[in-house]
Amino acid sequence: MPMIDIYAPAGALANIHEVARRAAEIVKRAERVPDIPLFRTNTAAFVHELPAEAISDAAGASDHVRVQVLTNDGALDRDKQLAVVSELTVLVADASGGRIAADRVWVLLTEAIPGGWGIAGHANTNDDIVAAARAEIAEVSR
């Protein structure tokens, strides 16, 4: 149930709602979780548009986008990491219409500590999330 934050220069990405939706779908698909409401409604992306002067590398360029993906512990093995970074980079570069080059898209993958995934006021462990998913799958199967 990843959370994705995309930080981009204001106006650099076309249709930011679609970028957010597609980013969430990319990571949900990469995790290979069941397509159930628990994962569809708790995988989300947030696009943060920043003034260009709020972004700079050491050389002074502001044509960068940072994508930070937070997953639960162990959700992405190496193959999944490679896929997520590649697909999110392509998504951002394409959505920029050439304004942001792929080598200017930085993707950071981070993991929540066990118990560090709060939903509906409860700090979930991986076991809690797995149990909730199994219960939802059992309910849907009835």
Rank of each mutant, 00 (worst) to 15 (best):
R32D: 15
F39I: 08
V84S: 07
P37R: 00
T43L: 04
A61Y: 05
L88D: 00
A112T: 02
E53F: 11
Y7V: 06
A102T: 06
V90R: 08
A120E: 10
A83K: 13
D35R: 12
A30P: 01
V90N: 07
T110K: 14
I36C: 12
A112M: 07
V90I: 10
L109P: 05
I119W: 02
I6Q: 08
I6N: 01
V33K: 11
A59D: 13
I36Q: 04
K80H: 14
A75L: 00
L108K: 13
P34T: 07
G98N: 11
L70G: 03
V92I: 03
R21N: 12
V47K: 02
G11N: 02
P9K: 04
A58W: 12
A93P: 00
A23N: 09
P9A: 10
A112W: 02
R29P: 02
D94P: 00
A10L: 06
D35C: 11
Q68Y: 06
A10S: 08
Q81R: 04
T110M: 15
T89F: 12
A45V: 09
G98Y: 08
A93D: 03
F46P: 04
E25T: 09
G97C: 07
A59E: 07
L13G: 10
I26Y: 08
I36M: 09
I6P: 00
K28I: 08
V33C: 13
L70Y: 07
A12C: 05
P114A: 08
R32N: 15
T41W: 10
V19K: 10
I55M: 13
P2V: 07
A23C: 04
S86E: 11
